[in-house]
């Protein structure tokens, strides 16, 4: 546990020293959300109709951005070898990486959600649900993305391969997340959809780090 927290603390500290990566993901999210009004026209009803799906899709794409450096930077400077012989189980290394990715990318995206939601004319009543849905969806993406990043580590053009591997697996997050926001906007309870999304995260919490750990090797 000490080793897990040490690695988590180091990852967060490194992200704070290089805020550009986090900032890039947040700006990407806001800009993609801002493109929709230009594409579909500024009619408030049309925008509000597409807002839930657009928010989810933009957030997941933004959260993908820092993933291809997740293990790559450590592999290049030799840190990954040191982590592998540190005594921390490989699944533990992957779990700490996934949690750090969620904290440094998922949390800022949640903070930026009201800005993107306002641009998409999402009803204010649904903003809280949108933040909750994004919290769960980005957590799922952090977990799946860690497995994808471990699998594509060392692969030629791994940065292109990674979204192709991870995004299809994230489709349930888009479906249930958007459904939750839509329900909240229509005055219905978003709880069933958020619970289903939460079930997906609970499934990925043990499985994704195991998969990522199995893919991490010293080769």
């Amino acid at each position: 546990m000490t080793a897990f927290l040490a690695l988590l603390g180091r990852e967060v500290r490194l992200a704070l020293r290089h805020p550009a990566d986090t900032l890039a993901a947040v700006l990407f999210f806001v800009i993609v959300a801002a493109l929709f009004p230009f594409g579909v026209g500024p009619a408030p009803e049309t925008l509000a109709r597409i807002a839930p799906g657009a928010l989810l899709a933009a957030a997941l794409l933004a959260a993908l951005l820092p993933l291809d450096r997740m293990f790559g930077a450590d592999a290049e400077d030799g840190t990954l070898d040191q982590l592998l012989v540190s005594g921390l189980p490989r699944a533990g290394i992957a779990g700490a990486k996934a949690l750090a990715h969620w904290i440094t990318t998922g949390w800022p995206l949640m903070a930026a959600t009201p800005v993107a939601a306002a641009m998409l004319n999402l009803p204010v009543e649904a903003w809280g649900t949108a933040i909750a849905a994004l919290a769960l969806a980005t957590a799922l993406l952090s977990l799946l993305g860690t497995a994808g990043a471990a699998l594509t580590l060392g692969a030629r053009r791994g940065g292109v391969l990674l979204p192709l591997l991870v995004l299809p697996l994230a489709i349930p997050a888009v479906i249930f997340g958007a459904a939750a926001i839509e329900a909240a906007g229509a005055g219905l309870s978003p709880a069933p959809f958020l619970l289903l999304l939460g079930a997906g995260v609970s499934l990925a919490v043990p499985l994704a780090p195991l998969a990522a750990g199995a893919a991490l090797t010293g080769d």
Binding site: R10, R13, R17, H18, E76, D77, G78, T79, D81, Q82
Partner: peptide, 9 residues
């Protein structure tokens, strides 16, 4: 071979 030194720390 690599020193595993993080440039930002």
């Amino acid at each position: 071979h690599q020193d595993a030194v993080k440039p930002a720390l």
